[in-house]
Write a protein that binds this DNA or RNA. Structure first.
Lengths: 216, 216
DNA sequence: TCCTCAATGTTAACAGCATAAACATCTGGG
DNA sequence: CCCAGATGTTTATGCTGTTAACATTGAGGA
């Protein structure tokens, strides 16, 4: 196969699938999922529109790939944010602060990369077998790394006595729901036109509130 | 103007704007915002596609009208649910239960009317001057009735000593974020394929958690 | 070495969409 | 009575996704 050979034929691209995904990711980053249009991605790669059909079943399939990239980018950003955080001595306090940091990282990514974030959670086909069913995430896929870290943090809250065991079930859903909804209200909803400082204050208070509901 | 006269000319519709909105709402209810396509709405009303441009500046404008209808439907559903609820004697307990009911009503509408719900919060034009800026809602518009009721309920939580005054700011954002995010995770996200009973249990626990974070 | 064939790209074509321009038909107010 | 503005229609343009038929390339077996 052609690979990325110096510059011979130019008829075969060599890595068209990834190139198309890259172009589509750029489009998504600029304008969200509705902007990832197959013909434009092909155009920006310099290839005929129908060439994409050799690598994707259609526009929906391309969008699906971009969505996966968005999820990975979110996860990567969050884990990076988490690793940069100084570790506290007290395990209970550490778990609480860690939970707050996870929420902050989530919302921060949404604000800094609105197009990618919206794409990461856009509706694709009704049948999406890639999603995990609610409460248990496969821990071998990179896009779920952040979710696994949330789970571990919640476990730590229980282990350190900061959270009552009977509150543990579905705790990740409560946490995730709050930061997810907050992100969307900020991106597209009534909080969209809020000045940055007020917005940040609201984010802080919201995260404090949900964590308070969890730890008790 | 023609009004809804018996059935004379048929050239002028008489109430085309509302008819188009109605058709578009039906489309949105079936398939969400991306399905509200101007030509199909015109078709189902029995009118030429370009006739719509006498009443809307374009497809985006029509979608905007449908979005408003969705918001009103959500608000109406929630207030109805609230009014059906039995009132408790203890004011503090009443406020807490009321807050929980508001959250339940929100998520319930999302589950029962997914297309309308998604349309009510879909992205339209970047400039949306109809949104209120975050923390204060105009209390004279029907689509904000439910939000005003949430605000009142939170005030009641403070007044009855169930919530500390310093937690009051942005409390509506925290509450709204949680139920909003939960709704979307259920509609389009990882909770989509959850069986109804498990899903309902998760909803209950999530609402309990956020209310716990508010009341303290 | 050469030759075939599957992989991968291209052009041409079609249908559906939003939208604009020019034209047609009512209808209310002078 | 009649005409001007409101409302609806036809026609046309350019975008999109998608399919079908054709072209080019490279890799591996005769």
């Amino acid at each position: 196969m052609g690979a990325i050979t110096g510059g011979k034929s130019r008829y075969h691209h060599g890595d068209l699938r990834n190139a198309l995904i890259g172009a589509a990711v750029e489009l998504a980053a600029e304008g969200g999922p509705e902007r990832v249009v197959l013909r434009e991605a092909a155009r920006s790669v310099g290839v005929s529109p129908t060439a994409a059909y050799r690598h994707f079943s259609g526009q929906g399939d391309l969008l699906h790939a971009v969505k996966a990239r968005g999820q990975q980018a979110l996860a990567a950003s969050m884990t990076e944010t988490l690793h940069a955080r100084p570790r506290l001595d007290d395990p209970g306090e550490e778990a609480v602060r860690r939970a707050e940091a996870i929420g902050r990282g989530y919302v921060r990514f949404a604000i800094e990369h609105p197009g990618l974030f919206r794409t990461a959670f856009c509706r694709t086909t009704p049948e999406a077998p890639d999603d995990f069913t609610g409460l248990q995430a496969p821990d071998d896929r990179p896009e779920f790394a952040a979710f696994v870290e949330l789970s571990d943090t919640l476990d730590a809250l229980v282990a350190t006595g900061r959270m009552r065991p009977e509150n543990r079930p579905a705790a990740e859903v409560a946490a995730w729901s709050t930061v997810h909804g907050l992100s969307l209200l900020i991106l597209d909803g009534p909080l969209a036109h809020l000045p940055a400082d007020q917005r940040d204050a609201v984010v802080e208070r919201t995260i404090t509130t949900i964590v308070a509901g969890l730890v008790r």
